[in-house]
Amino acid sequence: MTDRIAVVTGAASGIGRAVALGLARTGARVVAADLDLDGATAVSREVDGITPLAVDVADPDSVTALAGQVATDIGTTNVLVNCAGWDRTGKFLDSTPDFADKVVGINYLGQVHMCRAFLPGMVEAGEGGKVVNVASDAGRVGSSGETIYAGAKGGVIAMSKSLAREMARHAINVNVVCPGPTDTPLFAAQDERLKEALIRAIPFRRLAKPEEVADAVLFFASDAASYVTGQVLSVSGGLTMAG
């Protein structure tokens, strides 16, 4: 992927970090975009070819500014990977409108904003491209304590399938990776009883490594998936086996 420019959100930690490093190791020039610029900068020091840039995916103006900076300073994006996400477990009846707005703003609208900002450049370049949206198996089968998050991630799945239909005429592939429980800072912050219950429920009896989820993202971002679009791939150790 030495001729590719890839933008990865949520790249300061967890799955986004693993994706950014994985793409850079294939030779792609990678933009590690995150609200945590210090974290993204630390990632950029691990492998050559990574440029850290700040973005708040929930803020359309911030996303527009990122797209402009990438186009001006680096070039046309060929690969867009939307990894940025956030959640906090709790009962739906205890949730607040502000919490719901934050979850939807980051996990769903953040991906909408990124696609809206970067796809015009891909279309205009006429060279095709890859979009990989990271959702969650919570969006496929539901998850107790994550109702609003599951709804947002379900929206990502539906949005991606529709977008895949629209972008096919431009040779732009749009696919979705749905991680199950993964060893990330986001998972570590969850309730201990929930974490233990999830691990017991996984047939492999362990969490996914971020790199294992990144491998699925890298497949969709590569030419190996040139004839694959509108698809959803779960990486969950068998926890979910959705049809």
Rank of each mutant, 00 (worst) to 15 (best):
G128A: 05
N175D: 04
L119S: 13
P181H: 12
A6K: 07
S144N: 10
G110N: 00
S95H: 07
Q111T: 10
V235Y: 00
V47I: 15
D34S: 06
R200H: 13
A54C: 12
V177Q: 00
G105V: 00
L207D: 08
M241C: 14
G154C: 02
G39W: 08
D38I: 14
T89D: 13
S136P: 01
A11D: 05
I157V: 06
R206E: 10
T182M: 08
M122A: 07
I148W: 11
T77Y: 03
S222K: 02
N82F: 01
V43W: 12
N78V: 02
F99M: 12
F219T: 03
V112H: 11
T2S: 14
D48N: 14
E211A: 15
G85P: 01
L53G: 08
K209I: 02
G14Y: 00
F99D: 13
A11S: 08
Q190S: 15
K195S: 14
R88S: 15
G126P: 03
L218Q: 06
V55P: 03
E146R: 12
K91N: 14
I157S: 01
D191K: 06
Q111D: 06
A18T: 10
G75R: 04
P210I: 03
S136V: 01
R193G: 15
A138S: 15
L66C: 02
D101Q: 11
A84K: 07
S162L: 12
A158K: 08
E212M: 04
A216Q: 09
L233N: 01
G105M: 00
P181R: 11
V235F: 01
V7R: 11
H170M: 01
T229C: 04
A221K: 04
G90K: 04
T96I: 04
L80D: 09
G22A: 02
V213P: 03
D36W: 12
H113Q: 05
V30L: 06
L66A: 09
R169G: 13
Q231R: 04
P185T: 09
F92M: 11
L233S: 01
L53M: 09
I106C: 10
K102P: 10
D223N: 12
A150R: 00
G68V: 12
G128E: 06
A208T: 08
P185A: 07
C115M: 11
G27H: 09
I199W: 07
G16V: 01
D3S: 14
V43P: 02
T72F: 15
T76F: 09
I157G: 00
G27F: 01
G151S: 11
S236A: 14
F220A: 09
R29Q: 14
G230Y: 00
A138Y: 12
A214K: 13
D56I: 09
R45M: 14
L163M: 03
R206C: 06
D94Q: 13
T72V: 15
A67Q: 01
I202K: 12
S160P: 00
R206M: 09
G49C: 05
A216T: 03
R116W: 04
A6C: 06
V79E: 02
R206Y: 07
F92C: 09
E211N: 06
D36T: 08
I148S: 10
S143W: 13
D215Q: 15
L93Q: 13
I199D: 07
D48P: 07
G14C: 08
L207M: 11
Q231C: 07
V131A: 03
P203V: 08
I74T: 03
